[in-house]
Each structure stands twice: as structure tokens, then as C-alpha cells.
Amino acid sequence: MVPEALFFSALLFVIGVVGVLTRRNAIIIFMCVELMLNAVNLSFIALSRLYGASGQVFVIFVMAVAAAESAVGLAIIIAIFRHHETVDLKNINLLKG
């Protein structure tokens, strides 16, 4: 059960990484980050079956931080949209040399 869960967790994490690397829509990239956080949560839960309930406590913390992060990140995306009228990362290249 635990190795399978770690296997699914690795798969989900890499799917999230691939999404962050290949997509251009800022909102979808943000959702991919959430997917990666979820994959790590799955590892925590699986390993808490072996090492005790501290892993579950950590998952609660990760969820709280993810909620805060999504609130602030989406507010930033709204601010960027007001400025550029787009969330396509191709057009948001102020720091590009």
C-alpha cells in the first residue's frame, strides 16, 4: 500500500512539474503548483502509516499554507491582469533581457 502511494505521489508530482514547464496560462501553472503540493501531501500521508501521525499534522500545515498562497497568488494574477489585460506568460516579460 505505501510503495504504491509513493509511486502515485511521484507520478502526480512529475505531472505538476511538466505542467509548470510547458504551459503558458498563469492560472493553469498555479493549479499545477497546487497539484505538486497535493502529491507531496500524499507522500506524507503514506509515510505517516509507517512513522506515526506527525505526517498528518504536517499535511494540515501544508494545506493552510497552500490556502494562503493561492489567495495571495490569485490576487497577484488579478493585479497583473489589470495591468497587462492578459495572463499569458508570453506577454509578461518585464524582466527579460
Binding site: A67, A71, V72, L74, A75, I78, A79
Partner: peptide, 11 residues
């Protein structure tokens, strides 16, 4: 709390 305030200020 900081995230709530920050989100409101930013958006």
C-alpha cells in the same frame, strides 16, 4: 491573517 489582508490589498 496576513494572506487575507495581502490578498485584499493586492486585488
Amino acid at each position: 491573517l496576513v494572506a487575507i489582508v495581502g490578498a485584499v490589498v493586492l486585488a
